[in-house]
């Protein structure tokens, strides 16, 4: 019979730790936390978007507004840009606004007025307007105070 020999096996943990630290260093150095991205979702149909958009939402609301023709429920906002692409002026019908605050105030009035049927908007923009400024306008529309989330876009022909 073989005699059992009690042998102690020592696992070398140091190389593994070295490697683990190297991996850790790599990941820490390459780590770039992703900033939180949000999004605005919208349905944009090819021709006369505002009218078709209403069709897609037929099932969601059966209020009296759905009986109003879509073009009457669509608010048109025009955005004019400066030469550098920044936002110069916004207008709704005859009213011109120089700042987003003014636009927001007017939109809040429109939304609060129950006699006005507007629940969607078409943003007509100058071709040169920077996306950043367009997004600021979209932000006003989609924000909690106004809440018009059905938007579509149009390009203003050259002035």
């Amino acid at each position: 019979m073989k005699k059992m020999k009690h042998e102690e096996v020592e696992v070398q943990i140091t190389p593994m730790l070295d490697m683990a630290f190297q991996l850790l260093t790599f990941f820490i150095l390459t780590f770039r936390p992703m900033p939180t991205e949000g999004q605005f979702s919208m349905n944009l149909l090819p021709s006369s978007p505002s009218i078709d958009m209403a069709k897609t939402d037929k099932t969601t609301d059966a209020t009296d507004s759905s009986e109003t023709p879509a073009f009457l429920r669509t608010l048109t906002v025009q955005l004019k840009s400066n030469l550098d692409g920044s936002l110069a002026e916004m207008s709704i019908g005859e009213n011109d606004f120089q700042s987003l605050e003014q636009l927001k105030t007017r939109l809040k009035e429109i939304v609060a007025d129950k006699t006005l049927p507007f629940d969607q908007a078409v943003i007509q923009s100058d071709p040169g307007l920077r996306y950043e400024d367009l997004m600021r306008v979209i932000d006003v529309f989609a924000g909690p105070e106004v809440g018009i989330t059905k938007l579509s876009f149009n390009e203003m022909s050259g002035v």
């Binding site: 939180t36 991205e37 949000g38 999004q39 605005f40 349905n43 944009l44 090819p46």
Partner: peptide
């Protein structure tokens, strides 16, 4: 956007930073 619409896409999402 118009090119996508011509190709038949209708659902869009515009990304922006949340803060």
């Amino acid at each position: 956007i118009t090119a996508c619409q011509t190709q038949g896409f209708v659902k869009f999402a515009l990304k922006a930073m949340s803060g």
